[in-house]
Design a protein around this nucleic acid. Structure first.
Lengths: 237, 237
DNA sequence: TCAATTTTGGATTAATCAGTCCAAAACCCA
DNA sequence: TGGGTTTTGGACTGATTAATCCAAAATTGA
């Protein structure tokens, strides 16, 4: 046990580095909460920073600058931690990026459900999604969606990015399909509409709106597209 | 004149480097065709490569790898020219990238009109645009649209990229609006549809489809979205 | 053929990059 | 208080980057 305790940073490092996303995620939790805090006999010096807070800061930097655009220096400055702390707790730059991307998807997912609330009109909820860019600041719109930024930049070169995108697409489209089916139940949408096809259509519209917003389209233009999309859905039968 | 002739490479270099996109585009033509070939007294050694061909090759490299992902070595290898030749004829890496982006937009524009042909159904032409991803190879789809890749990666940091995107959006939306008006004249679309709004909708759908294709959506899914979009347009009144 | 000029590509440079090393500081348990 | 262990941050490393320099090769007009 002493042996393990003595090697804990190296162990965590190798786990985070070698095994990629899965272990970085799973083991991060195990090591941080169970092993690191309860298992080792010697507690020694505790971390001076909050892992999640640092991750959130890194996410901001990566989102704003992209993977290659964000130097380790930028990240360290944004996260307000030392070099070695970053490498010990997150593995390396790529592992940190992928963990940020995961984190972003989770946040995105959460926002999705937060928006749902208890709105009795599924179609209104849908419109709320599409019109989100009319409520965001120009800076926020210009940052776009980290997931899309990742795919357009590293979808070809980083397999993990592509895999994550495929996974996300399935999940989002399933949620949109449920929303559309709900709208059919309330009578807002015609029953002849194929919910799966319509969900793909809405997802594409959402991605398109994101890009249009990022490219500098005005609030009015973005609102036009959101409104038109909902109107078109309602007209279908 | 001797003075000018002696400084021609340096002149061209400074023009390309300092003044950005406008002069890179305008002066590139002037210097290559007028000054370089007709004006100077001493012709000296002519270039061994075709400027446009080299540019087209650079475009491929930038498109596939992105700005930061493409090293000068990659570019030189792709363009099959020497280091100094590249810097003399294109300025620097950034100027080369921006010129490639310009070139890409021109090509895109050309493809747009090529597709028009003499098809008597404007709506069919529109469907042809949206369904383009069902005809492309997986590799082509994975490369996405260089313009979108540029905006999502460098829209915030390179003002020229954003300016170009805004310009392109206006142009493309205007073309789409004309197409939609034509479809109204043939009776394919209802006259109550606002052509400007609808053109923004179609443009967003096009961008969304591009991203979906790049993220690995299947041909079937992409076809679904394209078909649904056209059906939705037809249902509007 | 020769002077004038440009292209060309290999050598070079200075900066920056991600990542490692190490000693000192910090902390817990006994 | 002191032994055991971890965190921390600055110094360091080797690789890679965009860009420059320079001399040799190539070409034209005279």
């Amino acid at each position: 046990m002493e042996q393990i305790a003595g090697n804990a940073p190296a162990l965590r490092r190798s786990v985070n580095r070698g095994a990629g996303l899965f272990w970085a995620g799973i083991c991060g939790v195990i090591l941080d909460s169970t092993v690191q805090n309860n298992y080792f006999r010697f507690m020694a010096r505790p971390k001076e920073f909050d892992r999640d807070a640092a991750l959130a800061k890194a996410l901001q930097v990566f989102w704003a600058k992209g993977y290659e655009g964000a130097s380790t220096g930028d990240l360290l400055k944004g996260m307000k931690i030392g070099r070695q702390s970053m490498y010990d707790t997150f593995g390396d730059k790529q592992a940190l990026y992928l963990e940020c991307l995961h984190c972003y998807h989770k946040l995105d997912n959460k926002n999705f459900f937060d928006h749902l609330g208890d709105n009795p009109s599924p179609l209104e909820v849908l419109h709320g999604f599409l019109a989100i860019f009319t409520r965001r600041s120009e800076v926020e719109n210009a940052m776009g969606c980290m997931s899309i930024n990742a795919i357009t930049a590293y979808g070809q070169t980083k397999p993990e990015v592509k895999a994550l995108a495929l996974n996300t697409a399935d999940r989002v489209e399933a949620m949109l399909a449920r929303l559309i089916e709900a709208a059919q139940k309330t009578g807002e949408l015609d029953n002849s509409v194929d919910a799966d096809v319509a969900s793909r259509f809405v997802y594409a519209a959402l991605q398109g709106l994101t890009v249009r917003a990022q490219a500098g389209a005005s609030r009015g233009e973005l609102a036009d597209v959101a409104d038109f999309t909902i109107k078109a859905l309602k007209a279908m039968r």
